[in-house]
Amino acid sequence: MEELINKLKKEVIEQLNLEDISIDDINPDAPLFGEGLGLDSIDALELIVLLEKNYGLKIEDPKDGKKIFYSIRTMAEYITEHQKS
């Protein structure tokens, strides 16, 4: 899990062009949206693309994204859970 979390952090930074933020700046349990990283609705869509491109997971309804993209950890959990099946 920790390995996946670190990999995800790297991918999120790259996909969302968070240039001034390093892996250590991201707390895996902190909310990704709202204050924290200053992400917005387009970033949420970009995360959907990330899941599809890198993990083959499709999210049809962007509203589901709210829970999945709450934090890096919830993302990692979602990936682990859904890649098994």
């Binding site: 969302l16 387009i42 970033d43 869509l45 970009e46 693309v49 599809e52 491109k53």
Partner: peptide, 9 residues
Amino acid sequence: YFPSPSVFV
């Protein structure tokens, strides 16, 4: 095929 929403805008 992964159209990027952030590039599209």
